[in-house]
């Protein structure tokens, strides 16, 4: 399981404050702690309340780059901010994210090519998020085709079937699982599958329980990567256990370590 740590996000108050006050120590500690807890990559998101996003992104990416060369997933909807983030990365970055809309694909795929970056493709478009697996797959196929037309390696493409909060769109939870399963049959080799996990529990009472239950289910459907909270110990334990039960890792008494 490829883990992208979600904690460096301006939606969190401590991060927003650190960005505002240019407090390197807080950001760097968050980066290193997530890596210590098993993150393979780190999501980098400025949040909304930033005056000068261009220079803030540069500062944020460079600040993290001072303490680690781990992969960064640059998470922004603004093209210029995205490019600034990619420019400042020390190792192969990931673009988070594109929709299946042409204007997005036309700008972000060339950017991925230019910076040798991975790309997270959301199965959504201007019309919104489809309500069933088949419509999601159509969008996934479109993104995959556009990616392959550019001759980019399929293993650098991550399809995100977009999970919505269970209290908003409960019927979609199984549809997303089915999409994950089907994406693996789209090509040989197939693109990777990813989820922005915490969204499933947005606004619910038992967030952590819902997150880990859904992650275990998604793993059984073939999920390979997730953007999640590495500090959620029970989530980590459920994930490791699922990996053992799916015969992805070899069991031993200390497998939780």
């Amino acid at each position: 399981m490829y883990i992208i740590g979600e904690r460096i996000n301006g939606m969190f108050k401590d991060v927003a404050k650190a960005i505002r006050e240019k407090n390197k120590r807080i950001i760097q500690e968050l980066a290193l702690k997530q890596i210590e807890k098993g993150a393979d990559a780190l999501d980098v998101n400025l949040g909304t309340a930033v005056e000068d996003p261009l220079s803030a992104m540069e500062w944020l990416v460079k600040t993290i780059g001072e303490v680690t060369e781990i992969t960064l997933a640059i998470d922004t909807t603004k093209l210029a901010v995205m490019e600034k983030g990619l420019q400042c990365c020390k190792s192969k970055p990931i673009i988070n994210s594109t929709s299946a809309d042409e204007e997005k694909l036309n700008t972000l795929i060339p950017l991925a090519k230019k910076y040798n970056a991975g790309l997270i493709g959301l199965t959504m478009s201007r019309k919104g998020i489809p309500s069933d697996a088949n419509s999601r797959l159509e969008l996934a196929i479109h993104i995959l085709n556009r990616w392959q037309e550019e001759g980019l390696p399929v293993e650098d493409l991550y399809i995100d079937a977009v999970i919505l909060p269970v209290n908003v769109a409960q019927a979609q939870c199984p549809e997303v699982l089915e999409t994950i399963h089907q994406v693996k049959m789209l090509s040989q080799p197939p693109p990777k599958t990813i989820l922005g996990l915490s969204n499933v529990s947005q606004g619910t009472k038992y967030r952590s329980l819902i997150n880990r239950t859904y992650l275990v289910m998604a793993l059984a459907f073939g999920l390979e990567a997730a953007i999640l909270d590495p500090f959620d110990e029970e989530l980590r334990q459920a994930m490791r256990t699922a990996e053992v039960l799916l015969n992805k890792t070899v069991y031993c008494d200390s497998y939780l370590k």
Partner: peptide, 14 residues
């Protein structure tokens, strides 16, 4: 025993 081998490696690295 692959499980015991992994376990011993973890104990040693701990």
């Amino acid at each position: 025993d692959i499980n015991l081998a992994k376990q011993l490696n973890i104990l040693i690295s701990d």
